[in-house]
């Protein structure tokens, strides 16, 4: 059992939402999707998620004013890369926000999305430390990609006219099913791993946060989409709540290797 790390929960989920949204945006711009006038608003929402997340992340630090020094260790520390990635992403998003008026800016969106995607990779590496055997692998990256995908697609619906949402619905449905499978299978795999992995699995399975994330973040949205056949504006918020619960479980319920020193 670790700390719930609320600042990190908010930071990671919200920044991943921003990245997901940007990727969707970029994809659609490249695909020539036509949503003049929505672009700037979309940059604004991306910035809102990102800035809220980044502000939250400061509360995680013992000494937030020295946060900038975290860029110092690019040679080995993924956290430095994560900060660099998020910072560039922020700059590009700001640029996008201020430059995109009437005209679409496909290149900026593409670049931002690319940086965002890389940042997801850096994040995945940062949160896969040896201290947590259950996470010392590609799983964090998978989780983060899923978060970006789920929230990116669902929030995209805000900027998509209802008649154009059917393909979004399809992507989201598939993502939710993939997410559900991943999140249900992962603890089962952990159960057959070492002691600390198994302990992590048990902690997750016993956690209301985990089941909250499954039900609120995955099952409920699936049922709703199946029923409504659309992504109503409030649906992304439900998925967001699910993601936040899931991330809280990620930080709080994952068992640290040191808790089992002396045990097999």
């Amino acid at each position: 059992m670790s700390n719930i790390e609320m600042p990190l929960v908010l930071f990671s989920v919200l920044s991943q939402t921003a990245i997901g949204l940007t990727i969707m945006n970029s994809g659609r711009q490249i695909a020539g999707d036509d949503f003049i006038g929505e672009g700037r608003r979309q940059w604004g929402i991306v910035l809102a998620f990102l800035v809220t997340g980044m502000v939250a992340s400061f509360f995680h630090l013992g000494h937030p004013l020295q946060a900038y020094t975290a860029l110092k260790h690019l040679s080995t520390a993924w956290l430095s890369w994560e900060l660099l990635g998020v910072s560039i992403f922020l700059c590009l998003a700001l640029f996008g926000f201020f430059t995109e008026k009437e005209k679409k800016s496909g290149l900026v969106a593409f670049l931002t999305a690319l940086v965002g995607l890389l940042t997801l990779v850096f994040m995945g590496m940062t949160y896969a430390p040896p201290g947590y055997p259950a996470l010392n692998n590609a799983l964090p990256m998978v989780f983060f990609l899923l978060t970006a995908l789920l929230l990116g697609t669902s929030f995209s619906a805000w900027f998509t006219p209802s008649e154009d949402r059917s393909w979004l619905c399809r992507i989201l449905t598939v993502s939710l099913i993939v997410g559900l499978v991943v999140y249900l299978i992962v603890p089962c795999i952990w159960l057959s791993g070492g002691t600390v992995m198994a302990q992590t699995a048990e902690a997750w399975i016993e956690s209301p946060l985990y089941w909250g994330r499954i039900v609120i973040g995955l099952v409920l949205p699936l049922l709703l989409i199946w029923k409504i056949k659309d992504i109503p504006p409030w649906l992304p918020l439900i998925i967001l709540i699910g993601e936040l619960l899931g991330r809280a479980a990620f930080f709080q319920e994952t068992v640290h290797a040191a808790s089992n020193i002396g045990g097999l």
């Binding site: 013992g62 020295q66 975290a70 956290l79 201290g131």
Partner: peptide, 26 residues
């Protein structure tokens, strides 16, 4: 004096060697 209290080392070390000092937040 360089530490900003991000906790990354504490999370990372599988041997639980670095500890968080709640007084200094480092």
């Amino acid at each position: 004096d360089k530490c900003i209290g991000c906790g990354n080392c504490i999370r990372s070390c599988p041997y639980g060697a670095p500890r968080y000092n709640p007084e200094q937040k480092k």
